[in-house]
């Protein structure tokens, strides 16, 4: 039931406009054009600002294209911009984000896909209850749960340290953040996979059972190969979501492991020194680049992903 809405969005409906320059059409395209300006303006401003030198910014207006194109702000944003005492630019945050992103995406999708599979094909007593809690949990503000999670992670780290004899810290480390992303990604991803696997013909599942495949056999040999598109959708959803996260990053990591968004905010909103708007905009663009690339590259799948998040189970 999830994807049906997204898939329908292919052919336009409604009466066909008759003349090209009818008043209706002028209104129609006029409105769309004005709206487009509102949506595109910030991107345009970001790009032109990031390509100007500071003197030009102080004299000119934000909308004028750069007279002298310079890539220096980009270099500076990537390699030299300062947060506090660190002056190695956004590159540090970028790599931190990558280190957070990869395990978070892999683990959250692995767990959620198995959950969704179990919920749709191997229902057991109480499974629907847990699922309902999970879905309603998605609406609980993170702020309500965040402090006890900090405590839990700290305690779990201590327990693990005691068990293994080595110092393990979950709080403040990348792995703590991975766990948090896995937990809070679970409702939407589980819903996504549950709905997908529920749409797989039940007879296919029965045939596999008659053929002697078990829980994991059916998952890996039958369902996984079939569900590749939905895995891509889940990946788009998670990569954008985790890359764009700020709240968890700021709470569950420490300055050395801050993800890119947190570092970006610290660079731009830093109160020390002269404001370098061009560097700030280059840094902002750099941070937005990853989700933007995914958005433009994935097209329909992105829409499908967010629409999947929209429709309740």
């Amino acid at each position: 039931m999830t994807d049906a809405t997204a898939n329908k969005g292919v052919t336009p409906r409604g009466a066909k406009p008759r003349r090209r320059l009818s008043p209706t059409n002028i209104m129609l395209y006029g409105t769309l054009f004005v709206a487009s300006v509102y949506y595109l303006l910030p991107l345009y401003v970001m790009i032109v600002t990031s390509l100007k030198g500071m003197p030009e910014i102080r004299l000119g207006n934000v909308f004028s294209p750069p007279v002298e194109v310079t890539f220096e702000p980009w270099v500076k944003a990537w390699a030299e911009a300062c947060t506090g005492i660190n002056c190695d630019g956004l590159s540090r945050g970028f790599w931190n984000s990558v280190q957070i992103l990869v395990p978070s995406v892999v683990i959250s999708i692995a767990i959620a896909s198995v959950n969704g599979y179990a919920l749709s094909l191997w229902k057991f007593k109480g499974s629907e209850v847990f699922f309902t809690i999970l879905i309603f949990g998605a609406f609980i503000p993170y702020q309500v749960m965040i402090y006890p999670i900090v405590i839990l992670l700290r305690e779990a780290g201590d327990v693990l340290s005691a068990m293994t004899g080595t110092k393990i810290r979950l709080m403040g480390s990348v792995w703590g953040l991975v766990i948090v992303h896995t937990i809070f990604g679970m409702p939407i991803l589980t819903l996504l996979f549950r709905n997908y696997f529920a749409s797989v013909p039940e007879e296919l599942f029965k045939a596999a059972r008659v053929d002697g495949a078990g829980f994991w056999g059916i998952y890996f040999r039958i369902m996984l190969p079939m569900a590749l598109p939905i895995f891509v959708v889940a990946m788009i959803l998670q990569v954008t979501g985790i890359w764009n996260d700020f709240l968890f990053g700021v709470i569950f990591t420490k300055p050395e492991t801050y993800p890119m968004t947190v570092q970006l905010n610290n660079i731009v909103n830093s109160v020390q020194g002269v404001k370098e708007y061009n560097v700030n905009m280059a840094a902002t663009l750099l941070t937005g680049l990853v989700p933007l690339i995914i958005y433009f590259a994935s097209g329909k799948l992105f829409v499908r992903g967010i629409a999947a998040g929209a429709v309740k189970g």
Binding site: P201, E203, A207, A208, V210, R221
Partner: peptide, 13 residues
């Protein structure tokens, strides 16, 4: 037992 289904239920991949 062997079983044959209405929707054939062949593994598509």
């Amino acid at each position: 037992i062997g079983m044959v289904f209405q929707s054939y239920a062949l593994y598509p991949q």
